[in-house]
């Protein structure tokens, strides 16, 4: 029986690494049917798989598209297993929760999506608000999800100001103390982050993950 469980979990881990969402869905259901602890499946298969792939990517052995596909597959598995975990009165332990989005007026998806996937691949729960996100939506998301960190991306120098505006609005809503705010994107700099009152800035995806870890440890 133990052997069968291990086989199923290692298959699920492989399917996650391969970014095969259909297979992950199928195997996650099998996990529940077989009565395997869903929390164990999340930790030993989904999370372990994505962490492994994340390491490979950092070493230049995997592609970012592989990592994003794996992150998507992991989310498919999570959505199935989560219900079962809740049913059993448990909860998935993430390293932290991050709300992320590209600011209003900017529809560039790629940088933000890479950071989101890398964070997921590092064991964080990520709520991706998408692109062209108005300041008000960030405020609502803080109330709704109570994240540890809010991340804002922008690619255009014209929409940089929206990062400032969003932080202002979060302050006005009285939520600034509840979250750490980080920013990124091609035109941004460390000085800009300081100027608008953000808690951190990162030049690329890997640095962003390190920044998030640092901020959460300091908390």
């Amino acid at each position: 029986m133990v052997l069968v469980d291990d086989d199923l979990l290692s298959e699920l881990r492989e399917a996650t690494i391969n970014g095969d969402s259909d297979r992950v869905e199928e195997l996650s259901r099998k996990v529940i049917e077989a009565g395997i602890d869903p929390l164990e499946a999340v930790e030993k298969a989904l999370v372990k798989g994505i962490l492994e792939l994340g390491d490979r990517w950092i070493n230049g052995e995997a592609f970012i598209s592989d990592l994003i596909a794996a992150a998507d597959a992991m989310k498919v598995g999570l959505s199935i297993l989560k219900n079962e975990i809740v049913k059993r009165g448990g909860a998935i332990k993430f390293r932290g929760r991050i709300v992320i989005g590209t600011v209003e007026g900017d529809i560039h998806d790629i940088g933000k999506s890479i950071v989101a996937s890398l964070l997921e691949a590092s064991g964080f729960e990520v709520i991706d608000l998408g692109v062209d996100v108005p300041p008000q939506r960030f405020v609502e998301a803080i109330r709704e999800y109570t994240p540890d960190i809010v991340g804002m991306s922008t690619l255009l120098s014209t929409t940089m100001l929206k990062q400032k505006e969003t932080i202002e609005m979060i302050k006005q809503a009285g939520l600034r103390d509840r979250v750490k705010i980080i920013i990124g994107g091609a035109p941004t700099t460390e000085e800009w982050a300081r100027e608008i009152g953000a808690d951190g800035w990162a030049p690329d995806g890997i640095s962003a993950v390190e920044l998030v870890k640092r901020l959460l440890n300091a908390k």
């Binding site: 970014g19 592989d66 596909a69």
Partner: peptide, 16 residues
């Protein structure tokens, strides 16, 4: 329009 090829299966099978 405005989408992202990074997430498409085609990218994974063809980029390499």
């Amino acid at each position: 329009p405005g989408g992202l090829f990074l997430k498409h299966k085609h990218t994974r099978s063809w980029w390499r």
